[in-house]
Design a protein around this nucleic acid. Sequence first.
DNA 1: ACGTGCTATCCCACATTATGGGATACTCTG
DNA 2: CAGAGTATCCCATAATGTGGGATAGCACGT
Lengths: 215, 215
Amino acid sequence: MDIVTGVGVIDKAMLILHAVADSPANLNDLQSATGLPRATAHRLASALVEHGMLRRDADGQFALGHGLVALGQAAAEHFPLADLARPVLEDLRDQTGESVQLFVREGAGDGAQRRCVLSFESTHGLRWIVPQGALLPLDVGSAGRLLSGESHRDGWVQSVGEREAGVASVSAPVTSGDGSVIAAISVSGPIERLSRQPGKRFGEEVVAAAERLSG
Amino acid sequence: MDIVTGVGVIDKAMLILHAVADSPANLNDLQSATGLPRATAHRLASALVEHGMLRRDADGQFALGHGLVALGQAAAEHFPLADLARPVLEDLRDQTGESVQLFVREGAGDGAQRRCVLSFESTHGLRWIVPQGALLPLDVGSAGRLLSGESHRDGWVQSVGEREAGVASVSAPVTSGDGSVIAAISVSGPIERLSRQPGKRFGEEVVAAAERLSG
DNA sequence: ACGTGCTATCCCACATTATGGGATACTCTG
DNA sequence: CAGAGTATCCCATAATGTGGGATAGCACGT
């Protein structure tokens, strides 16, 4: 087995999925991308094909399968927040002209992270992009600190050049009926435009958007 | 182990995913839906949560995870045919007023099936619905027989009450540059509207749509 | 407050399951 | 036809996942 022992089949299967996620891959690509032995990679990939998580494309390469898009759709349907948030975020993006995102906390305890569920890009030429589905750390960035429980005096939290140099952001919490934070809305862009006090600049707008969603 | 021995971890994981796909489920639901022992279901589900394929919702229930929507999106991006087909199918639906679908063959040899990649519903009150992502048999239904290699003299294949009583359909092949069949476009609806010769009624339209996509 | 029924989570000896090195079968290309 | 680059198959080995049961946590009703 690999140097790292104690990894389960599911972990290996996920390695394969993510290796294929970027672009279709043949067995050799899989092997080098995952570090798995050929036979193992082949067996797992074949099993995933059987279940529609992967497919063989015209060239015989492994690509993400159609079962995955079906499951992905189902997943989106079972998460109504994203649908509700779409128009709100779009409005916010138009108001501010900057990139806006919706983050949710994901994972337990120490390994917790935040996931960008929704992302609309700034209309400016110089724009800061967070891809949908991206996983970001929980301890840096305004939305991250917000989701990790940091208090927000004015309804928002800001950060300047914290997670990424040159990027500033303001975030506000989306709360459920009982007041618990279930998500965070974030406006982010270059410091040059957001200034060193992004909260002053866009705090009100972000909070308003977050409140439209809360409840 | 279960009565059915020889099933792999991945198969069990997929059981769990599909059990959750319909609606969020707690551990007991999972247990009865999958037939897996509690401990096993719990361990696998937890592993899937770690990888973002599942998540714990507000009630602690297992639901489809955000990682899944990200992968699903990526999968859709890597399958350009679906995007190209969208406007074509929409036009076809408007022309015919009936439900239209795009099918691709999936799986090898004996266990081959067809997957509905795209589905637009008829505007009629009485409509025949094939959900996106659905897996259908390859040996019945016009699109099924088409994808399993049946010849199509007039450019289309029809079926009447074959897979489902009361439902008729016409399908035409989408071919790649070298003439091989890579997908099938299908118009289907109640026999009352499509008649017992759906090919005569909508054959031309389906073939035209399929040709717009081919190549 | 206490018991009761429900659930999620953890533990550990066991053997079923996945493993992976290597042999084989394909499929192009020159 | 030789040769390189593939995918696929095989099978002895042991590492992995298993699952019965024990524990912990939670919510409700008496």
